[in-house]
Simulated scan of single mutants.
Amino acid sequence: MTQAPRKNLLSTERRGKKWMVTAGVILALISSIIFICATSPWMLYLARAVEWIALGAFMGTSNALLLHHTSQQYIKRSLAYSSMATLLGFSLGPAICGVIVQYSSFSPETFPYVVLLVLLLFALGLLFSLPPTNEKRNKQTPIRIRLGIPSKSRRLFVFFVCTAVFVMLALNGVVISLIPTFVHTILNLNNLAWSGLLLLIFLGGGAIAQQIAWPSHTNSRIQVGIILLLIGAWFMITAGFTSSMFLFIVGMILLAIGNGWTFQASMQLAGSLGETFERPTIISTYYLAGYTGMAIPTIGVGSLSTIVGLLPALIIFGTIVTLIGAGIIAVPKISERKKVSSM
């Protein structure tokens, strides 16, 4: 990110980080209400659109708000807890929904959003209980969407941190969309609760894997995590070809560990780059890269599968992601060589 006047960095400078996070939660509440009241397809699309706006407003700024209330020596630990909570949230959602849809006789299509509504109201109450951030606010600053790349670590951030979270969520998005199919073809089950349980193991396992201390170096943790993600993805693809339960389970375990290490370490690295006032835009850019990785490849694989079939589409996807992953592993080494040669 080029050095710009601080007042132009982000719309949080207009009202503050706490206000932006609160706005995200309120938009999520509105989205849940629309889902509950939906009676036609356009309302579902509207609810989903509002939900993604809420997520965009919340995710990056919430981490910046967390860092605002965190002492300098505890920043790495706080970001580790944040990444763990994110994976746990993503895993508990489908697990709870799967059980409700499969076993609840009380409006199973809307009841999950009622549960979400209650949780969001609880989160809103916790937000109001936070002390004020005492930020300098400029109400004349126009509201705008601004992203940021740290000027001193541009190469590392773009080609290593952002690309790592892109690959991680690209694999997650495709695997998550395929798990119901795998449950049916490999496990021979039609119970939706099993799909939710596998997602709980898949993403929740990533949160648990973050407690493993090795490898301790941030860059190495990301690199090993990417390797595990790629190997796990190929195990899953092969399981789809062979309908092998063993390959399916091993692939899920490798992907879970790779998720935990890659997300935790890349989040910590993103939070350590740039100046303090740059972090909201840096983390927002980090999440944009991640959710782009979840959206575009999933749509691409789905579209390609209609032309060449699902498994060939997965092979093409796996090959492309493997090549990107090899580049991620090489970036820090290239940077280190350049530093040595310039000395």
Rank of each mutant, 00 (worst) to 15 (best):
A47D: 02
L156T: 10
W261L: 00
I329L: 06
F202D: 03
G318A: 12
S151N: 13
T133G: 10
S11Q: 11
W42V: 05
S303C: 08
V99P: 03
W19D: 12
A85D: 00
F182R: 03
T319H: 10
I100F: 07
S83W: 00
A123R: 05
L310W: 07
I26N: 08
I26Q: 08
T276F: 13
L169Y: 08
T39A: 11
I53C: 14
I100Y: 04
K18R: 14
R77S: 07
R155T: 15
H217V: 11
S91M: 03
V165I: 13
P215N: 05
G196N: 06
A207Y: 03
I237F: 09
A38G: 06
P215Y: 13
R337W: 10
A28Q: 12
K333S: 10
S244P: 00
S284G: 06
Y45S: 08
L273P: 00
Y103L: 13
T306M: 10
R137P: 01
S105Y: 08
G293C: 02
T61Y: 11
P332H: 06
I315N: 02
I226T: 09
V340T: 12
K136R: 13
K7N: 14
V321Y: 15
L44E: 03
R137Y: 02
Y286N: 00
F58K: 04
S220T: 12
K136S: 12
P215R: 10
F277L: 13
R6V: 13
G60C: 09
W214S: 02
A239E: 03
L203E: 08
V331H: 09
G93I: 04
P5K: 15
L310C: 03
T110E: 09
H184E: 10
K339Q: 15
Q73P: 10
P297K: 02
S11I: 12
A49P: 07
L178I: 01
K333L: 12
L192N: 11
A123C: 14
I36N: 06
C97K: 08
K7I: 07
L44R: 01
S91G: 15
F159E: 06
I208R: 01
S272F: 05
L230E: 06
R279L: 10
L88F: 14
A313W: 05
V340K: 15
A49D: 01
I208S: 01
A85I: 02
F235V: 01
I296R: 08
G148F: 13
A313I: 13
I307T: 10
N188V: 02
Q73C: 02
S342M: 15
Y113V: 06
V25I: 15
P312T: 09
V25P: 05
M294D: 04
V175T: 03
R48W: 10
S216G: 02
S335N: 14
P108R: 04
W19F: 14
V158C: 04
S83V: 00
F263R: 01
F128D: 00
Q264W: 00
